[in-house]
């Protein structure tokens, strides 16, 4: 069976989510790899979300927010950006490829850009292969124990 990545996506209500919606109503084709979680703003993003996603076996995490300056909450997206960068540093240190986490600005009108982004990011993750944590969970005997910690 070919590897189909699972990508958890955190989207802001105003831009990212609307863009995904637009991509949907425009009937744009994009891979069914993304699982979208709506947040009110990328400023709601918490490093714990990403770490928890990888812990549970996600292959990639995508965060989409409004372009800088367009945030409904003035600077929530910039706070989100800081946190994503911080999380990337943490991921690199603990041994997960930081490129598995990505932040992109997608405005509400950019449905085609969103579809292209998902295609491209899915391809990147497919090349990187599955999350090493997921492999160990299914392969090793103690896997379940590790996954439950």
């Amino acid at each position: 069976m070919t590897f189909e990545p699972k990508i958890i996506t955190f989207m802001c209500n105003w831009c990212g989510y609307a863009a995904a919606d637009l991509a949907g109503v425009s009937r744009l084709q994009y891979p069914a790899t993304v699982r979208i979680i709506r947040t009110m703003c990328t400023g709601r993003f918490d490093p714990g979300f990403v770490l928890r996603a990888f812990e549970k076996g996600a292959d990639g995490v995508l965060v989409c927010g409004c372009h800088p300056g367009d945030c409904q909450y003035i600077e929530g997206n910039l706070k989100g950006k800081d946190r994503v960068e911080m999380t990337q540093k943490m991921l690199e240190g603990i041994g997960i490829d930081p490129e598995r986490l990505r932040l992109e600005w997608v405005s509400a009108s950019e449905g085609p850009i969103f579809a292209e982004l998902v295609r491209e990011f899915s391809e990147t993750i497919r090349k990187k292969g599955p999350n090493p944590l997921k492999e160990s969970v299914s392969k090793t005997e103690g896997g379940e124990e590790v996954a439950q910690i």
Binding site: E55, P132, L133, T140, V146, I149
Partner: peptide, 12 residues
């Protein structure tokens, strides 16, 4: 908690 949990995995 997730950070240490990830680090505990032998695959990492």
């Amino acid at each position: 908690a997730p950070m240490y949990s990830i680090m505990a995995s032998p695959a990492i």
